[in-house]
Amino acid sequence: MTHPPCVFCDLLAAGQATWVAREPEAAAFFPLPDSALAPGHTLVVPRRHVVGVLDADPQTLAATVRLVQRVGQAMTHALEATGVVVLNASGPHSGQSVPHLHFHVVPRWPDDQAHLWPADRSRHHVNGDAHHLLAAALRHDQPR
C-alpha cells in the first residue's frame, strides 16, 4: 500500500535530523528550532507509517510509547526536568499537524512558566451519556 508523501517518512529515509534516538521500530528527534516548546523538546515517531493512535497496530504503538517513556526518563536525568508533558493529536479535527503518528515529549521545570495543558473545553454534545456509551463500546470491542 502506498501512502501520500509524508514529511516524517521522508525525514526517516533521508536520515537528516537532530536525532535523539534511532531504534528498529521508532525514532526520536528534535523539532525545528523555531517550533521547540522547551529546551530538549523531542518528537517520537514510529518508523512504520501510521497516521495516528487510532490506526496504529499494537506493536507499533507499544514500541513508540516505550521510546516516549525512555526519552522522558532521559529528560529527567540529563536535563534535570522534574516532569514531562506528552502531547499527541490523532484523527480529523484533532489538530494533528503531520499525518504520521507522533508524540511531542516536552520537559518541564518549576520555573519554566509554560502553559502546555489544553485550556479550552469542547462545546460538543453527544446524544446520550458519554460514560455509558464509551463503556458499552469498549465491552463490545474485539481485539485486532
Rank of each mutant, 00 (worst) to 15 (best):
D10E: 15
A13R: 14
A78I: 06
T64R: 06
H140P: 11
H77E: 08
H77A: 05
Q113G: 08
V126N: 13
D141L: 15
H49Q: 11
H93N: 11
A17H: 04
G52Q: 09
G128L: 14
L11Y: 11
G128W: 15
G15N: 10
P143H: 10
R70F: 02
V68K: 01
L87G: 10
P39V: 07
L116C: 11
P24S: 03
P33C: 08
F8T: 07
H102C: 02
A17V: 04
V126E: 15
H104S: 03
V44Q: 00
L11W: 04
A28I: 00
V44F: 00
L101E: 01
Q113S: 11
P118H: 09
T42H: 01
F103E: 00
V105E: 02
P99G: 03
V51R: 10
P118L: 08
P118A: 06
D111N: 07
L37N: 06
V86I: 15
R70M: 02
H3P: 01
Q16P: 03
A27W: 00
L134E: 15
H131P: 07
V98D: 03
P118D: 10
F29M: 04
P110K: 05
N88Y: 09
A13M: 11
R48L: 04
L138W: 15
A38M: 04
F29L: 06
V53H: 12
V86S: 09
A17G: 08
S35P: 06
P46R: 01
W19L: 04
V86F: 09
T82W: 08
H41T: 03
P39L: 06
Q96I: 03
P58V: 12
F103P: 00
D120S: 07
H132P: 11
T2V: 11
A89W: 06
R70E: 02
A119C: 04
R139W: 13
Q16C: 06
A130C: 10
A114Y: 06
R144K: 12
A21E: 03
A26P: 00
P58D: 15
Q96T: 03
V85T: 13
H41M: 08
P107S: 13
V51L: 09
R48S: 05
F30P: 00
R70Y: 01
A74M: 01
P5F: 08
M75Q: 03
G83M: 11
R70H: 02
L32S: 12
H41S: 03
P46D: 01
P46K: 01
G72N: 01
D10P: 11
A119T: 09
H93D: 12
F8I: 04
R47W: 08
W19I: 07
D141A: 15
V50K: 08
Q142K: 12
V50D: 07
A14H: 14
G15K: 04
A13L: 09
V65M: 09
H131T: 13
L43H: 01
V53P: 07
P46N: 02
H104G: 03
V51Q: 10
H131E: 14
V105T: 04
H49L: 08
E80W: 05
A13E: 14
A56W: 13
P58S: 14
R70A: 02
L11R: 10
D34L: 13
R144E: 13
M75W: 00
V44H: 00
